[in-house]
Write a protein that binds this DNA or RNA. Structure first.
Lengths: 155, 155
DNA sequence: TATTGTTATACTCTATAACTATA
DNA sequence: TATAGTTATAGAGTATAACAATA
């Protein structure tokens, strides 16, 4: 930032490139920004974005199976295993065998899990809000509606 | 999909969870969908999304330095090194020393690189279009404008 | 002294296949 | 035979620190 006084190459110099107008690229970059904000917010809670999502689903009362969690979060079932192992090891969630299909486990949060989640959620929401200040309320709504279509396209 | 006749657990069952309304989550999931579509489109060209982006920037004529590429794509400079190594090894791009700062390399595409890029671009765009059919033209514009703000927030 | 690019390393994430127990 | 979850493993992506050449 000091030797470039003659040619101040700021980051957005490339924003007018072909790829800079590409929706996939913008989606990827916006996601990267959002991801690191969320992870920074979660750092103090011993969670990362993935484990937070699994915990959040467990706290939601929907009693999701591991397979449902995998599909919803777009993770491989084997990744869900280790995420739950970690959360269960900390006493935040429990695998409950589904009586209607004994192959299947259903995920529920413990009381500790509920507490940890609600504290972590405060920081996740705060980090997200900080990012979203660049958007109007209308833009946020529009973004949510459009992303929902895209996120669950062909499913 | 057969044993669940009594309780048809479709993927969107969890869409009404707290996290299913979260902008960060929707952004992450939409990006995952878009990423795998793009990578599928690139598979036949020996490229992945990252190498394609670097190649695209090289083809753009902006003569970006490795540092600019790293910042724009939100990659670590060391990742850019190996991406360029790979592309240069295939004769698609060349590192040109910047005469104004001999520490710095500037990336340019070879003729082969331009050809490979333009062929790959066809499939990337096709994959993206297939995904975007769920959106109206107005929604696409809105999405691009909103994502641009988010993607380059605080920079 | 600071910066660009490079190398090395470790850690996380992703993708695959094979196994078990149930259905 | 098919499915839910598990284990193991390899490959891709991410993050960090240290180094050489140059500013």
């Amino acid at each position: 930032m000091s030797a470039d006084t003659e040619t101040p190459l700021h980051p957005q110099r490339l924003a007018h490139s072909v790829i800079g107008a590409d929706l996939s690229f913008l989606l990827a970059r916006a996601n990267a920004v959002s991801l690191s904000a969320a992870n920074a917010g979660l750092a103090g809670h011993g969670l990362r974005i993935r484990s937070y999502c699994v915990l959040a689903l467990a706290c939601d009362g929907a009693r999701p199976s591991q397979k449902e969690i995998a599909e919803f979060l777009r993770l491989d079932p084997s990744q869900v295993v280790s995420l739950i192992d970690e959360l269960a090891g900390r006493g935040l969630v429990e695998r409950v065998p589904d009586p209607r299909d004994r192959r299947s486990n259903v995920l529920v949060a413990t009381d500790t899990g509920l507490e940890v989640h609600s504290r972590a959620r405060v920081d996740v929401v705060r980090a997200e809000e900080a990012l979203l200040t660049v958007l109007s309320a209308g833009e946020r709504d529009a973004l949510a509606n459009i992303l929902r279509k895209l996120a669950f396209a062909n499913e």
